[in-house]
Design a binder for these strands. Structure first.
Length: 304
DNA sequence: CATGCGTGGTG
DNA sequence: TCACCAAGCAT
């Protein structure tokens, strides 16, 4: 019996007490989501992670089902025009994700024989996959041991361990270190822990209206024990939308998504009356590769 | 490291 | 009503 090594900033023993209650809670309360079913496979997990970046589960569900039915393997998506991915993305938002998912499917087909890679570094090298998504796919699809630090997990850790209401705006080195410290030793337990702590943040330890009475670690939660002090420090950056280029881009792209044939400039001009901003938004879509300009002032979703 | 990037539900 | 929120990434 060798006790785990401890450094001064390392975990007190009770931190590992979080694992069992959270994992047991997860076993009881986990949502039955399609990408958690065995038949989803690594590709299903990866598609879901792209769609879930900044988008709620309820809106992802129907698009996910259609996507997997149409493109059951990466190679199926890879041989499509990228514009078809953008069209199928529908109104999920942040349509550059659709382009990146298509690009990732192409890269998987070319570099990995059509199979979603298992190595974190190879996942990270794919377009649209950052630190979080690489860890999530490696953990959820392949059962590997990674710190999976999304906004839910960060909030759970901020409250339960750090004793504050919200995590910092940007992920800090201290958060990463804490997440690694809290990771169970066994691969399968670590993967279970990652999913469980995320689900706890999504269902119980939510940003607003948290439900501590349903929380399996309420008795250990540093934030609750401290009397749930309000967030101090600068307010978290709010998203502005009305009147921004993002809104204009959304309107322009909606026209192109719904069009079967190339669309004349005049049809796009109708979605926004301010010409300078409208032109800037359209230029941005073109430079992002979301829109393809054709001769004669026609526009369409990218063909290739 | 701060910004830009969609969309729709909700209190 | 409208600000806030929802499994981030790239630059």
């Amino acid at each position: 019996m060798t006790a785990p090594t401890k450094t001064p900033e390392n975990a007190p023993a009770e931190r590992t007490d979080l694992h069992e209650p959270v994992i047991d809670w997860f076993s009881e309360h986990a949502r039955d989501l399609p990408w958690r079913r065995p038949e989803a496979g690594p590709w299903g997990v990866m598609v879901s992670e792209f769609m879930l970046q900044q988008t709620p589960v309820s809106r992802v569900l129907p698009v996910y089902e259609q996507w997997l039915a149409r493109w059951p393997r990466p190679a199926d998506l890879a041989e499509e025009a990228p514009g078809e991915a953008v069209r199928a993305w529908g109104r999920l938002g942040y349509p550059r994700r659709a382009l990146r998912l298509h690009g990732a499917a192409v890269a998987i087909t070319e570099r990995h024989g059509g199979d979603v890679p298992t190595a974190h570094a190879q996942l990270l090298a794919l377009p649209g996959i950052g630190e979080y998504t690489a860890a999530a796919v490696a953990s959820f699809a392949y059962g590997q041991r990674h710190a999976v630090l999304d906004t839910n997990v960060r909030r759970v850790f901020a409250r339960a361990v750090a004793g504050v209401q919200f995590p910092p705006n940007a992920t800090t080195a201290a958060e990463r270190k804490l997440a690694r410290t809290l990771l169970p030793e066994q691969d399968d337990t670590a993967a279970r822990w990652a999913a469980a702590s995320m689900e706890l943040g999504a269902l119980v330890c939510t940003a607003k209206n948290e439900e501590c009475h349903r929380c399996p670690i309420a008795a250990l939660c540093a934030w609750r024990l401290a009397g749930k002090p309000a967030h101090d420090g600068p307010p978290r950056r709010g998203q502005t939308y009305a009147g921004t280029d993002r809104q204009v881009r959304g309107k322009l792209l909606a026209v192109l998504r719904d069009a079967v044939a190339p669309v004349p400039q005049a049809a796009l001009d109708r979605v926004w009356d301010e010409p300078v901003q409208r032109a800037r938004a359209l230029d941005g879509l073109v430079s992002d590769g979301l829109v393809e300009p054709l001769a004669g002032g026609l526009y369409r979703l990218p063909a290739g």
